[in-house]
C-alpha cells in the first residue's frame, strides 16, 4: 500500500484541523488551493463566527469573484450555510451570533458600524432552502422589494420591473395571466423561481442561494440550474448545496467546508476530478465517516 504517494505532505495534517478549538491559533488549517481571485466582488478575511461559545466558522479567507458561481459544499453542520448568511448579515437576527474578521463588498466592510443592513441586503440578495413566497399575489411578491426601497415612483415603472424580473427568472410566460393570484398557489419550482425574481427585482449584485433546490423535484431543479447559468452573466452567485452533482454542474469554483474550516477551494473541475485535500476527496467520493 503506497498511500503516501497519493497526497502531498499537507494531506496528513487535516486530522489536526478537526478539533477547531485546538487549531484556532495554529496555521495547520491553511486552506488548500487559491483563495484569491482577480478583481473580486467580495473578500472575506479571517472570518470567525461564534454561536455563544461554540465556534462555527474558523478563520475563513475567501474571495468571491465577479460574475462567477461559487458553490459551497460540505457535510451537514460544516458551517457553509453560516458562512453564506454572514455575506448579507442574515446572522444578525441571531442574538448569540458573533462575527470577527472582515467581509468586504466592493472594498467596503459590510460589518462596519456605518454599514446599514437594509441597503446591504438589497445589494446581496438571498434565496432560501424552502421556497418562501409572501402570502400575497405574484405581482405583490415581486413588487414588494422595489416598493420598500422606493426604486420606482410610478405604477408603470413598477410593472416594468415586475415583468423584467419575472422574465429573467424564467417565470413570466407561466404566470403573466395570473399575476393577481397568490404566489403560494404556484408549484414548488415556480415558487422558488418567484423567490429568485423577487430577489433580482431589487437589483442585487450578489445572490446567495441556500440549498435552493433541496425541496424540488429534478425537473424543477434543472430549471433552477439553467436559471443560475443564465443569471451568472449579470450577478455573482454563491450557492450552498448538498448535491455535489449540482455543485459540479452550476459552479465555476467550489469551496469545501469541514467543521467550520474552509478546507479546499478551487476550480470546480479540479475539485471534482482531482481534489488535493484528503478530506475533500473523501467527501466527494462518498467515503465520509
Amino acid at each position: 500500500m503506497q498511500t503516501n504517494t497519493l497526497y502531498n505532505s499537507s494531506a496528513t495534517q487535516p486530522d489536526n484541523c478537526i478539533n477547531i478549538q485546538s487549531s484556532i491559533a495554529s496555521d495547520d488549517c491553511h486552506t488548500v488551493g487559491n483563495t484569491s481571485v482577480k478583481n473580486p466582488r467580495m473578500n472575506c478575511r479571517n472570518v470567525d463566527v461564534f454561536y455563544a461559545d461554540k465556534q462555527a466558522i474558523n478563520q475563513v479567507t475567501l474571495d468571491i469573484g465577479r460574475n462567477e458561481v461559487i458553490a459551497m459544499i460540505g457535510p451537514s453542520g460544516c458551517g457553509k450555510s453560516t458562512f453564506l448568511r454572514c455575506l448579507n448579515r442574515m446572522n444578525d437576527t441571531i442574538d448569540s451570533c458573533r462575527i470577527s474578521g472582515e467581509i468586504l463588498l466592493d472594498g467596503q466592510n459590510i460589518y462596519d458600524k456605518r454599514q446599514d443592513v437594509v441597503p446591504l441586503r438589497a445589494q446581496v440578495g438571498m434565496v432560501f432552502q424552502k421556497p418562501n413566497p409572501f402570502p400575497k399575489s405574484i405581482y405583490e411578491n415581486v413588487a414588494y422589494g422595489p416598493r420598500i426601497h422606493g426604486l420606482t415612483s410610478t405604477k408603470s415603472d413598477l410593472d416594468i420591473i415586475v415583468e423584467s424580473s419575472l422574465n429573467r427568472a424564467g417565470l413570466w410566460d407561466e404566470v403573466k395571466d395570473r399575476l393577481n393570484q397568490p404566489g403560494t398557489g404556484l408549484s414548488g419550482g415556480q415558487q422558488q423561481r418567484l423567490c429568485i425574481a423577487r430577489t433580482i427585482a431589487v437589483g442585487p449584485e450578489v445572490i446567495l442561494m441556500d440549498e435552493p433546490c433541496s425541496a424540488l423535484d429534478p425537473i424543477a431543479t434543472a430549471k433552477i440550474e439553467e436559471l443560475i447559468d443564465e443569471l451568472h452573466e449579470e450577478y455573482t452567485i454563491v450557492i450552498v448545496t448538498h448535491s455535489m452533482q449540482q455543485a459540479a454542474r452550476v459552479s465555476q469554483r467550489t469551496a469545501y467546508f469541514h467543521l467550520g474550516n474552509l478546507i479546499e477551494v478551487g476550480e470546480t473541475n479540479q475539485i471534482f476530478s482531482n481534489p488535493r485535500h484528503k478530506l475533500t476527496e473523501d467527501y466527494i467520493t462518498g467515503r465520509f465517516g
Partner: peptide, 15 residues
C-alpha cells in the same frame, strides 16, 4: 408565523 416569511422579507432588505 413561519420564520421563512421573516427571512424572506429581511432577505430582500426590509427593515
Amino acid at each position: 408565523v413561519p420564520p421563512s416569511i421573516r427571512e424572506a422579507a429581511l432577505g430582500i432588505g426590509a427593515s
